[in-house]
Simulated scan of single mutants.
Amino acid sequence: MTADHRLLLVHAHPDDESIGQGATMAKYVAEGRGVTLVTCTAGEMGEILVPELEHLAADREDGLGLHRKGELAAAMKELGVTDHRWLGGFGTYRDSGMKWHEDGHAVAADDIHANAFWHADLTEAADHLVAVIREVRPQVLVTYDPFGGYGHPDHIQAHRVAMYAAQLAAVPSYRHDLGEHWDIAKIYWGAMSESRMRAGLRLIRDSGDTTTFEGMDPDGPLPPFVTSDENLAAAVDAQDVVDRKMAALAAHATQITTDGPFFALSNNVGSTAWGIEYYRIVKGELGPLGEDGLETDLFAGL
């Protein structure tokens, strides 16, 4: 990786990266910045939205993970990302699955596979990422918040692994065999703007659509993945490449349908729905701020 600016993203399953930071990734690639994605599992337990592929389900042929590997490769091609890794190598950790808690957030499933990511040894998993960090030497790391956005156990575990690995990678005396130590200058958690989400929901409801993001009231309580604007630190405007994000989303065909909520929001709100991506800062100093009081570049100030 020879780019002066290098971004590392750590995600749990294929499609998480395109949903959360697909536009940012495409923008930085277009600008000649380095973008590395680490995916922790192949999403073997995901829901299958394509009827003719239902035979790939975990309780049937159990071939969804390999199929989603191909979907992720296609999505990365749409975004222009050429450096993608599987944590520990493909198949090291399996999608843990999930179920819905009565309070509306995800929790661990009742039956979990032996090598489920949720049960991974934290130090072992972090060491896999330490080796990547020390090789790529990114200035910026992006991952989930401690709740993993909505409680999915693999998202929570990805957060833990990313944060712990960032600490370990910076220790000069830790695991010389994993490379020369590297301290990541800035760490962010991906976020969704509350004001932007409410505005989008309002437009959707005003259009007569009551099923997209069903149960969400523009003026009522919102899910935990929505972040109060006062807690946001950065907004990367990548509307000029949002078509690449939408193409990447479409590549994850078993998980995302073009008539589903992501595309419905985009159709109602336009490029701002998914072309502006928000972040909370965790480590590092804020750089110059834009007119709305937020950083416009994750590398600002470096």
Results as ranks from 00 to 15, higher is better:
V136K: 09
A114T: 15
R175D: 10
M197I: 11
E135T: 07
L201R: 00
E102T: 15
H181R: 10
G70A: 11
V132H: 05
L72S: 08
L298E: 00
L203T: 06
V269L: 09
A234I: 06
V269E: 11
D154Y: 00
A170R: 02
D297Q: 10
K245F: 01
S266Y: 12
T2R: 15
H13P: 06
W182T: 03
L122D: 00
E102D: 15
R244T: 02
V132R: 00
L168I: 05
A199Q: 10
T254N: 13
V38C: 02
R280N: 10
I281N: 12
T24D: 09
H155A: 10
R205H: 05
R244I: 02
A23I: 14
S173W: 14
P223W: 12
L222N: 02
A12H: 03
D292T: 06
L168R: 04
T254W: 08
D15L: 13
G215N: 08
D297A: 03
A264K: 09
T41L: 02
T39V: 01
G22A: 07
D103S: 15
D62W: 10
A116W: 00
G149N: 09
G32I: 03
V140M: 02
Y93S: 04
G91M: 02
L87Q: 01
E291H: 14
S207L: 05
T2A: 15
H84I: 04
G91Q: 07
E295H: 08
A253V: 15
G293I: 05
Q157L: 14
H113Q: 15
T123I: 11
H176N: 13
L79N: 05
E285L: 07
V132A: 01
V236F: 09
S271T: 15
D110L: 10
G260I: 04
V236D: 00
Y28P: 13
L302I: 12
W274H: 13
L286S: 15
M246I: 13
R85T: 01
V50I: 13
P51D: 05
L249I: 08
A158M: 09
N115I: 09
T123C: 09
D62L: 12
Q167V: 07
P138L: 02
E31K: 06
V241H: 02
E285Y: 05
A58T: 08
V142Q: 01
G208V: 03
Y164S: 13
E180C: 08
